[in-house]
């Protein structure tokens, strides 16, 4: 039985669109095609002039790019081309005359008068709408459920609206999938004279380089104005406004992403230039310490990978003929089988390779490198490195670079932003700070490692495991550091000779002072420790004075990287200021649903979603960070640090990381604030004061009774 071939109806729709576009090209926009042909001929003649000028050929050409267009564009223009040239020549001096300025001011004021004449009518309409129509919706009623108009809309109108929306969504998706839009766009770029303008510019550029003619420049400006008028005459004004808005939106999003990336680069410069290996962020509660710490950690992780990559590229330059991919594959194999797990094991691995080579001197023992024919060593002007010195450095760099895990260890969960692109050749890392879609699930993402403080202890340790090792390289984030380490006053009851680990006998501070030694490769250090605390004095002086303090002096929220958003801001602000009080009052007085409220709420919902997503993608805070030495000498340099919403607030870390631990204690009582007893009067009596379980009240009462 023959299988019925079902033809997708969307092909018919697109065929009709293409047919209509081509018909319009032939019968309406034919001037654009004639102009394009002229522009192409001008490119050839300009190339001839260019060749005659620079290569001394003798082509007989008439440069069309030096003259007015011969195409009949004057039917679109209010003036002839000669008149336009005369106007252009006289324009600059005429701009600076009082008569012209006064005439323009009169014109503008006439326009404003027209607008002001309509303004009272518009204001009156809004006022009547608010007072007569909306206020009637605020009368108290016991009605429940939906009104009849709303029911009709939801049951009859909305399904049709959704079907129409789905139809166009699928039509657009089909066009994108079959790559039909690019051909349609090409036809319309030709129809609207856009491509002619580009080609005409090319023709003029080639001519102008050969013959610097001001008259030709002016004539081409006239040609350009004529071409632009032909372009704008090709579509109705409303359609141009829509196209203009789409182009503006695309451009402003591009500039927004550029600005966010620039802010991120400034942050990286700040971290590399001003932060030390051990840092402490200090500020009041809810001032953004954890937020800043997380942001620094995410950027530092990318900095370490960038540094490793830079280091590897330098090794490539030292031995350009070395088969680096062979070494990389061996390092990846060693990582998989746990022969390499950290920097010391990477160095041991390279040393083992060196010994194997020197016992045999075969190419297979030196990763297939033709060491007899190519360079065996590199002189950097200070010392000479042989192949295996470079291999040892490279092995360490590549290990840190390729390991497919977060480089962050922390005492609260951080969702890493590093993404590895690996198509079987050299892997490349990028971050998902600004381009990723909104996050849905955080479970099973690339998360930070749970910090084991024993890795930072050179003395006594809390855990009983012997094979803990020490923290090698990476980014360590320690929130509430003062509560972990304590200061001299809080630790005074501990003794160094205690059997159990305590802040005095664990030599944590000593490790922080020498931490760079375990994380340095080729004079570059791959470790940073960032903590936060409310008061710097909460951390002992021994540790604090080797840190850099970062004071959160101020945080300016709600900056927007996307330009030209002011009108949307005003509209959104107006809608919320009017609608929010209305809906609260409405819900206070009634529970039912009405069509007008439904439509208004959905309009506000659309704007709310658009506004929130814009700030979510392109919003950022500016934190004023005051840098001070840990010795707290009072010299504070304030720098700006940029925290992008999409980078750091997209479920990247929990702002309430101890919530679950506190909840365990809270749930024991099975009561809440509503269950707590209240005072009977403005002055509490003895029984009520005793219920406070207060140290002061207990002591006070003891003295009063004594």
């Amino acid at each position: 039985m023959k299988k019925e071939r079902k033809i997708n109806y969307r092909w018919y729709i697109y065929s009709a669109l293409f047919a209509a576009s081509i018909a319009l090209a032939v019968f309406v926009h034919n001037t654009s095609y004639v102009r394009l042909w002229e522009a192409l001929r001008n490119v050839v003649s300009s190339a001839g002039v260019y060749s005659n000028e620079f290569f001394k050929t003798s082509f007989n050409v008439t440069p069309g790019a030096a003259e007015f267009t011969a195409v009949d564009v004057e039917k679109f223009l209010p003036f002839t081309l000669d008149e336009m040239l005369a106007k252009l020549e006289a324009l600059i001096p005429e701009l600076f005359t009082w008569e012209n300025f006064a005439a323009y001011m009169l014109f503008v004021l006439n326009g404003l008068t027209l607008v002001l004449a309509f303004l009272p009518i518009v204001v009156l309409c809004f006022y009547l709408f608010g007072q007569l129509i909306l206020s009637s919706y605020l009368s108290e009623t016991d009605k429940q459920g939906r009104s009849k108009p709303l029911n009709f809309y939801l049951c009859r109108v909305r399904p049709i609206k959704e079907k129409v929306k789905d139809f166009f969504t699928e039509l657009v998706a089909f066009g994108k999938e079959k790559k039909l839009f690019r051909w349609l766009a090409l036809i319309w770029l030709l129809n609207l004279n856009v491509i002619s303008i580009g080609v005409a510019f090319l023709a003029f550029y080639i001519y102008f380089v050969a013959c610097f003619s001001v008259l030709a420049l002016l004539k081409n400006i006239v040609n350009l104005i004529a071409d632009l008028i032909v372009m704008f005459a090709g579509l109705p004004l409303l359609l141009w406004l829509v196209i203009g808005y789409v182009i503006l939106d695309t451009l402003r999003k591009y500039f927004a992403r550029k600005k966010l990336r620039h802010n991120e680069n400034k942050n990286k410069g700040f971290i590399k230039g001003f932060l030390s290996l051990v840092n402490l962020i200090v500020g009041f509660m809810r001032s953004g310490k954890n937020l800043t710490e997380t942001d620094i950690g995410l950027s530092a992780e990318m900095i370490h990978r960038d540094m490793a990559l830079e280091g590897m590229v330098e090794q490539w330059h030292k031995l350009p003929d070395f088969p680096w991919r062979n070494l990389e594959k061996e390092v990846e194999r060693a990582l998989f089988f746990k022969e390499i797990v950290d920097l010391p094991s990477a160095r041991e691995y390279a040393e083992k390779k060196r010994k194997r080579f020197f016992s045999d001197m075969q190419r297979s023992k030196i990763f297939g490198y033709e060491w007899e024919n190519f360079a065996y060593e590199f002189d950097n002007g200070m010392y000479v490195e042989d192949v295996f010195d470079i291999v040892e450095t490279y092995t360490q760099y590549y290990m840190m670079y390729v390991v497919d895990t977060s480089l962050i260890v922390s005492n609260y969960a951080v969702r890493s932003g590093a993404i590895k692109n690996d198509n079987g050749h050299f892997p490349v890392w990028r971050d998902d700070f600004f381009d990723a879609p909104s996050i849905r699930e955080t479970f099973d993402n690339n998360m930070s490692h749970i910090i084991d403080y024993d890795q930072f202890r050179l003395g006594k340790r809390v855990g009983k495991e012997k094979d803990v090792g020490i923290f090698g390289y990476g980014v360590a984030l320690m929130s509430e550091k003062g509560k972990e380490r304590g200061n001299a006053v809080e630790n005074q009851h501990y003794k160094k000779t205690d059997e159990d680990a305590n802040p005095r006998n664990d030599y944590f501070n000593l490790f922080l002072k020498v931490i760079a030694h375990s994380a340095t490769v080729d004079y570059k250090t791959f470790v940073i420790v960032v903590g936060d605390e409310q008061r710097p004095e909460s951390v002992g002086a021994d540790e604090r004075e080797v840190s850099t303090l970062l004071h959160i002096c101020d945080r300016e929220q709600n900056h927007l990287a996307m330009p030209f958003f002011e009108f949307e801001e005003l509209i959104y602000s107006f809608l919320r200021s009017k609608f929010d009080p209305f809906i609260i009052e409405y819900r206070y007085n009634r529970d039912d649903g009405t069509l007008l409220t439904y439509l208004m709420h959905h309009l506000v919902h659309k704007f709310y979603g658009y506004y929130t997503r814009t700030y979510g993608k392109y919003g950022y805070d500016v934190v004023k960070l005051g840098i001070e030495k840990g010795t707290m000498d009072g010299q504070i340099d304030v720098h700006d640090y940029y925290i992008s919403n999409h980078k750091t607030k997209a479920r990247r870390y929990p702002t309430d990381c101890y919530r679950n631990m506190l909840a365990v204690k809270a749930r024991r009582a099975k009561t809440g604030i509503a269950d707590l007893p209240t005072y009977r009067d403005v002055r509490g009596d003895d029984d009520e004061m005793e219920k406070q379980n207060s140290f002061f009240v207990t002591e006070f009462q003891k003295h009063l009774k004594g």
């Binding site: 005429e94 005439a103 323009y104 709600n558």
Partner: peptide
């Protein structure tokens, strides 16, 4: 975005539109 920044930016756009409008107006007038 701060209100002062919104108003400041709108004034800048208005000035730019005013200037472009002036150039086009004079071009048409002469």
């Amino acid at each position: 975005m701060k209100k002062s920044k919104i108003i400041g930016n709108i004034l800048i756009y208005s000035f730019i539109a005013f200037t472009i409008g002036y150039v086009i107006f004079v071009f048409k007038m002469i």
